[in-house]
Design a binder for these strands. Structure first.
Lengths: 220, 220, 220, 220
DNA sequence: CAATAAACGAGACGGTACGTCCCGTCTTCAG
DNA sequence: CTGAAGACGGGACGTACCGTCTCGTTTATTG
């Protein structure tokens, strides 16, 4: 649920202007589940059909057979609706492998992720959501919890499995996870180069062995 | 100049809908340099004042003392204006070090970059531009050339210096550069963790040595 | 009661579109008198506070501590509620004098009416109700019975007293009554001139004596 | 023109809340006459088709092929648009007779007016405008000048012709004019009785001769 | 050094989405 | 099992910005 984040840990860009919201809060117990799902479905379909930028709240309302007021009652803006629809449909699509080999697990996971990126204009939607979180702190919180934290947890688990198997000594996994997702995210959003198997392999090799050691890694 | 890219190399998300522009092309020789600069200044100021999302072309025009038609004559949309203003003001602010140590050079460069990220709501503006390139192929091309390529070239040079010094054997630098910028870009846009010195150091160490460095890595 | 008129005498503008109301009729014996009065009180207070135009059914409901459904159950629209509240509070406020002098009685009655026009934004409310009756025939019927007929009967009685006293010969009182109320109504609604004593006196004199005779009526 | 009243004579109900309007005033020299006329035409047609109450600014805009902003730029609300359209189309439709007989002139004029009242849902539109002037002082001023003053001037002229012909001695015509229009306006808006020839004749007779004419009126 | 054509400022325009408001109906839940 | 509370679909509101389009005016190349 977007509107009810309970965590409030420190974040690293200012969210400042979201203020407001003193206006009457609706009672969630009376919420129409029919309308709720119709809205998320409409949003997901429009995302495929026209993309985030050309999507409007009025169009979602019309497609869902719902008053625009009903959307505004439960979400603060377009980004929030899309986030919920997008999160719901892209969650848990990638299983976490556990073969005993860190390299194999990581590579398999990354390659599976690439496949998942073909739906719902993934890169473009992600880019739009990322832009939106910079002006809406509530959304930012939800985004980090819905997408970022969950995916990071998966990669973390892969590394922790390796530590458990003694394949790896304990280390600061936060930066390591950034090193896994960072390059992928960067290519996904900037589009300067493709997310293909070769990229995945080189990335994993470099990450595990380091680039100054890779002069010896000709066997890969 | 944004509107006149000549490169058309293959890219990795579809840009499709940018069409149009069959309309009369204005004569750049008659362009008013006064208006040109006034517009870029106004855009840069508004970026600081209200941020990308709350900025409008009409507001830029008003602040620049210019007709909105004059803006539309030379740029295709808000993102294009902002891109030019932003590129002009954030270019070449970071010198490329050459101490003889790859690690030191890389770390110094990254830390200097972090400092440059404090201006013009860097992360937020970047996020907005990244979102915009997904619906405007002309802009995408310009963005990759103005920002991405230039910065990548700097990092590439640092690694090439190391190769020249024999500190490193030749390798596929494209992915390596993604491994430098990816994690930074990821933290910058998602905001889940800060861009601080510790992050820079861990990133550089992991990248150069690999995360499995302390173990016997012969089994890979 | 507004919604239950039994008279259906011919009227002089088309009421056509009032349709509806085939829906289940509530049982008036079960009506909550507490809610009934609370609604009329709330309507009357809002009339004073914000005027007819800025008043909403939702606001009446809120102020009365009543569900909006309860209002819709017993009245067809805002105009009907206001009509009942307004009628209840402006009825019979002016006594009918009987001094033996038609002129004196008429003048006294008119002047007393002017005083009554100071409450509940009388002119403005009247104007709004008059506008409303043109699109709601049920309301129109009620309005003519609640306001118009009652007031006309008062003036009619004054003239009939005069006929009884032989001060006047019998004549078509319908038009005469229009000649009493018409000018007052006209000033009240159009607001081009005040409802003051001088107006009342000139009106009565002209009406009784005629304007072509008034060259002789210098004594007034 | 509605927006440019120059007279500011005292009026008799409070207009209070129209405030504001400090927002930028558009330049009338750049006004599109095409749009202006299209809007008035659309308004007039909608007035005939659906009546004032069921007419919306959006519908006028759509019918006129105009942006709703263009309407709001030049008029403050629906009533103002309708007023201008209505005034333009109902002005000067009744010629002022001058036969030498006050009674004949007045009767002819009134009967001709009745005929003019068949267009554009005259009574209903008038009622709505009258309601509107009670919450919009700018409109009120315009209404009194566009409709009320012009029509009053016509009747005034008829009486002044009679005074010139020595058929009548000079007297306070303001109240006399109220006595002509008042009863008509009252029947027009309230609809309790028709505007027919008999009404016109009785009204004129009573007005000129007085209702006590047949008796010895010296006691008044 | 005109003249002439283009860019310019100003800003109205058609269009469309915004987010708010109220309507009148329908659903839920507490007494 | 009534009735308050209030969410709902519908739709108009008035605002804002978009990008296009006149208008004159200014400016700078060209003949």
């Amino acid at each position: 649920m977007v509107p009810l984040p309970e965590s409030t840990s420190a974040r690293f860009f200012d969210d400042s202007v979201n203020g407001s919201s003193a206006s009457k809060v609706p009672n969630p117990r009376r919420r129409s589940e029919r309308a709720h799902q119709a809205i998320l479905n409409a949003a997901a379909e429009l995302l495929e059909e026209v993309g985030y930028a050309d999507m409007t709240i009025q169009a979602i309302a019309a497609k869902a057979g719902v008053s625009n007021k009903t959307i505004y009652r439960w979400w603060s803006n377009k980004a929030a609706v899309v986030m919920e629809a997008f999160a719901e449909r892209t969650a848990n699509v990638v299983a976490i492998p556990n073969t005993g080999s860190l390299r194999d697990d990581l590579l398999a996971f990354i390659q599976a992720s690439f496949v998942a990126h073909k739906t719902m204009k993934f890169g473009s939607t992600m880019a739009s959501l990322v832009a939106a979180i910079h002006t809406d702190s509530t959304l930012a919180e939800a985004f980090r919890e819905q997408f970022i934290a969950r995916r990071r947890a998966a990669v973390r688990q892969i590394f922790e499995q390796a530590i458990e198997h003694d394949e790896l000594s304990a280390l600061d996994l936060d930066v390591v996870i950034d090193q896994v997702y960072g390059p992928i995210f960067y290519r996904l959003l900037v589009g300067h180069a493709p997310l293909d198997n070769q990229f995945a392999e080189t990335l994993v090799n470099n990450l595990l062995l380091g680039v100054t050691k890779s002069k010896n890694s000709s066997k890969f």
